[in-house]
């Protein structure tokens, strides 16, 4: 039961890569040398999923042992990296809460933001710590009724979110979010995740 990261992004109407408005991540449970790669991947996958979440939609994407949940509210998108076991309903009530808080704090000023991470936002880190326990998120669930309105779309792999003809491998190769080390990390992980290579 773990939230690794929460991101708030601005979706560009012209279809270019979304801009990261705020980003909180807890990578302490990763090995020291993996942490920088993990952070890069969070940014990369976060952008990839957010870009493909149409306005008004909620979706959950399974990516390895993670579930990436995302919710796009009129161009303002929130993405959460939870592990497989974090209850989906609780996850979306956290996302909802984050968006509410964001709009309370910044209003519509995000529409004019044009670069990553321009607004520091301590609340996101607090939320990341607090909602590690899904019981905290469930307290929100009781007040949020809005959740039931739209159905959550589940994707079994990140590839199923991608448009026809797009491939994760080639996105990884092209991405400027990922360093050479991270790309190697990705290839290695892919190799070891294949069945029966070691055992």
């Amino acid at each position: 039961m773990k939230i690794t990261s929460l991101l708030v992004l601005k979706i560009n109407p012209d279809g270019s890569d979304p801009i990261i408005l705020a980003n909180a991540a807890d990578v302490s449970h990763f090995g020291y040398f993996q942490r920088s790669s993990v952070k890069e991947f969070i940014v990369f996958v976060g952008r990839t999923v957010a870009k493909r979440t149409p306005p008004g939609q909620r979706q959950s994407v399974q990516h390895e042992e993670y579930k990436v949940h995302s919710y796009n509210r009129n161009g303002l998108c929130v993405v959460g990296f939870m592990d497989d076991h974090y209850p989906v309903r609780s996850a979306f009530s956290v996302l909802n809460q984050v968006l509410d808080e964001y709009q309370k704090n910044f209003g519509d000023s995000w529409r004019s933001v044009s670069a990553d991470g321009a607004q520091p936002w301590p609340y996101l880190n607090e939320a990341l710590t607090k909602f590690q326990d899904p019981a905290e998120a469930d307290k929100l669930l009781k007040i949020q009724r809005e959740l039931d309105e739209t159905k959550i779309i589940l994707h079994k792999t990140i590839d199923s979110v991608l448009a026809r003809g797009e491939k994760l491998d080639s996105l990884v190769e092209k991405s400027s979010d990922l360093s050479a080390a991270s790309q190697m990390f990705y290839k290695q992980a892919k190799k070891t995740n294949q069945c029966c290579t070691i055992l």
């Binding site: 090995g31 040398f33 993996q34 920088s36 360093s179 050479a180 080390a181 190697m184 990390f185």
Partner: peptide, 13 residues
């Protein structure tokens, strides 16, 4: 207390 195998580019950076 911790060992990791890292890519040469990461090592360089």
């Amino acid at each position: 207390d911790e060992v990791g195998f890292i890519h040469p580019t990461q090592l360089a950076s």
